[in-house]
Nucleic acid binder design. Sequence first.
RNA 1: GGUCCGUUCGUCUAGGGGUUAGGACACGUCCCUUUCACGGAUGAAACACGGGUUCGAUUCCCGUACGGACUACCA
Length: 506
Amino acid sequence: MRVRFAPSPTGALHIGGVRTALYNYLLAHKHGGTFLLRVEDTDQTRYVPGAENYIIESLRWLGLLPDEGVGFGGDLGPYRQSDRQPIYREYAEQLVSLGQAYYAFDTPEQLDERRKAIDNFTYNYLTRSSLHNSLSLPSEEVQSRLAAGAAHVIRLRVEPGRAIHIHDLIRGEVVFQSDELDDKVLLKADGMPTYHLANIVDDHLMGITHVIRGEEWLPSTAHHILLYEGFGWSDTMPQFSHLPLIMKPVGNGKLSKRDGAKFGIPVFPLSWPLPGETAPPEDHFLGFREAGFLPAAVINFLALLGWHPGGDQEIFTLDELVQAFSLEHISKGGARFDYEKAKWFNQKYLQMLDNSTLMAYIRPLAAQKGYAVSDEYLAQVAGLMKERVTFLPDFVEVGYYLFEPVRDYDMETISKKWQPEWTPVFEQMTAFVEGYTPFESAELETAVKQFITDQGLKPGNLLPLLRVALAGTMKGPAIFDMAVALGQTETVRRLRAALAVFNGNN
RNA sequence: GGUCCGUUCGUCUAGGGGUUAGGACACGUCCCUUUCACGGAUGAAACACGGGUUCGAUUCCCGUACGGACUACCA
């Protein structure tokens, strides 16, 4: 089994493309096959520098490493279509000599005029005799035009009266009538192939056995089958599987790159452009990575968006996905992009990681904030915060008070809970904390509660204040866990600083 | 418009001729917790519609509606 992911480097790799790559990867690994990356950069007008690198970086981040392809070696390269240009011309000419294709001299402008003049104009068996091509023109004229270097394309010759059957592994049998098909351009005037030609030639030459691609390709698959037939490659034609599309979170239509900005959510694996590269301001997009997602969470989320193994299991490692994967369980209908679910997966994965692994993820984020703390401390913070964060940056943003003094005190809680006459007790408690050993969470908690009770107050009177003193907010880890993490000195310092705030004289 | 594809809770989906139509996200309530979360329990919530076929259809067939893709010398 050999499968390929064949993106076009026209910008950031869309999350739908990532899912296509994932399904190809899963299928290949499930069957011990080969997963290859081919870059389809045959449209010079849409080529975007940096896009190819972005695709490779995205696959690396997600851990979906190709076995062959651009940037990954392999014996059947080159794997970048612009590097294969001469091959396509050769095959296109071969099709012409076989009578399966023909030269056409009509300019884009002439065709536009036709389209304007005739509703639903199609370049096909009905109209080609009235156009300029090697089927309608005398052969001497065709020869002289070609000899003179006249601009031309090569078109597939689709003859009427045939039913073309596609055996799609996801959708079953789909039938197209050849009468409905147009004579697709195979080789463009600039000498580059269109998707249709390049795709079929390369899939054949690279020994592709299974084509897994988006549903948008289903309508042109009939042409592709005609091409395999035309070349005489029917017996090695790959099996087709057309994936359902990923739809907008709300509203109609498929998910688009602009939806990211519109809904304030990432729809790309990595932010675009990559660091060190530039793009126009309107082409800056947030990535899952930069939003603080773990790659494993993104993979898990994407895998289940349009596929389901059948049971109640929701959390899958990549290996488990490989084991469970099968094309038959792919849904047929489009799946709405559910960002809430994506967040849930991330939160789940964050919780599952052990503190030291998490620490490694948080380290650069802490460094960015200028927090110079030990690995041990960072791991401790990870443990304290991991059950109350959704994104990686939350550790240092939501939990900033574990790295620096409290910036904002929850004044509402203070005014509701604080009684100025408790000042002496609070001071005594602070002194008690300052002198208490060992400074360990459970013991400290018991002791402080007892101390408060001994002073004639209820623990519930002061505990919320204690929390606000340490974190500024009513949300967060257990009070005494925080105190221990912060350390005795810092805890005491915060208690004193907070008391001033409580009494309004800070 | 034409061609093709699709349609189970708000969302992702399981299921499949006879089920109390299952799970997850989100949402409500309760428990745990002198915080927030996590966790646990629980609730509300779906087979688009109309015809067939059948003893019986959400499941099979046809149609309608709705949604989607394609309809470029883009992929």
